[in-house]
Computed example of a mutant assay.
Amino acid sequence: MEELIAQYTGANEDERLTRQYITQLEFDTTMHKLMPYLSNGKSVCELGAATGRYSLTFAKMGCDVTAVELVPDQVDILNTKAKSEGIELKVFEGNACKVPFIESNSQDLCVILGPLYHLKTQHERELAINEAFRILKPNGVLAVAYISRFFVAGLFAQQFPELVTPEVLIELNKHGTVSNSKADRFFNIGYFATPTEVESLVQDKGFSVIGHSATDGFGRYISNGVNNFTPSQYQTWLDYHLINCDEPTLLGSSNHGLVVARKVSYQTV
């Protein structure tokens, strides 16, 4: 936990999502997929809110937002931004696996866009999804993001060939982790899932999957081209991407995936 907090202390999540077209694509796609569930007065909880790029956007849309973030530094930044922009939302420092301060059956939408990147054990991942189920209203909607382990393997082949060893790729493929000391700390503290695994995770915990999107598509592999688009070219590419991002064959090659699911009337424990 200390390593995770250290990794994100001082990190600028807003800049990450806006500094390049390829990261803007992730944000724009996620917002596009969430838009049907965001409207004035809706209760929305974000577990793992970072500095509030999404939570503040939801609040600006008139949603009643509760933002939960593990890293104290990120919580401070989120609160400062909300105050400076005159935005009202509830902000808590806390762990996505346990949010007792959020009332059961109180949220229309629960968004988990970062925690699954770092919850290394099946038990932790199940705890987070259990909490989402608990706090959601009947028929409420969960949106959970993950990083594909297949994309990570491709990234190593493209940018970090020293990590293309049997030991690294077998561990990644079997466990979704990277413990090799030559890897960047982000990979050492990360968990990388498969698309089918995340669908099964939410289904086993009482949700019915209603959408699954490759939020980056294959764009990360052609990032040099995408990042050099003109604004009109980016819009054209975004429109093309949104038409195709639910194509199942793209899911494993996308850096990020997004599963959207609805709470049903039962839950296995």
Results as ranks from 00 to 15, higher is better:
Pro36Ser: 14
Tyr37Asp: 13
Leu38Pro: 06
Leu38Tyr: 06
Ser39Gln: 06
Glu46Arg: 11
Gly52Leu: 12
Met61Gly: 06
Gly62Lys: 08
Asp64Val: 11
Thr66Ser: 13
Asp76Trp: 00
Leu78His: 02
Asn79Ala: 13
Asn79Ile: 13
Ala82Phe: 10
Val91Asp: 00
Val91Gly: 00
Val91Asn: 02
Phe92Thr: 07
Glu93Phe: 00
Gly94His: 08
Gly94Val: 10
Val99Gly: 06
Val99Ile: 15
Val99Glu: 06
Pro100Cys: 07
Phe101Gly: 05
Ile102Gly: 12
Ile102Val: 14
Ser104Cys: 06
Asn105Gly: 09
Asp108Met: 02
Cys110Trp: 04
Val111Cys: 00
Leu113Val: 09
Gly114Trp: 01
Tyr117Pro: 02
Lys120Ala: 03
Lys120Trp: 06
Leu127Thr: 09
Leu127Cys: 13
Ile129Gly: 03
Ile129Thr: 12
Ile129Leu: 05
Ile129Val: 15
Asn130Ser: 14
Ala132Leu: 09
Leu142Trp: 00
Ala143Gln: 07
Tyr146Phe: 15
Ser148Cys: 10
Arg149Ala: 01
Phe150Leu: 05
Ala153Glu: 13
Ala153Cys: 07
Leu155Trp: 14
Glu162Tyr: 08
Leu163Ala: 07
Val164Glu: 07
Leu169Ile: 09
Ile170Glu: 15
Asn173Ala: 12
Asn173Cys: 03
Lys174Tyr: 05
Lys174Thr: 12
Val178Met: 00
Ser179Lys: 06
Asn180Val: 04
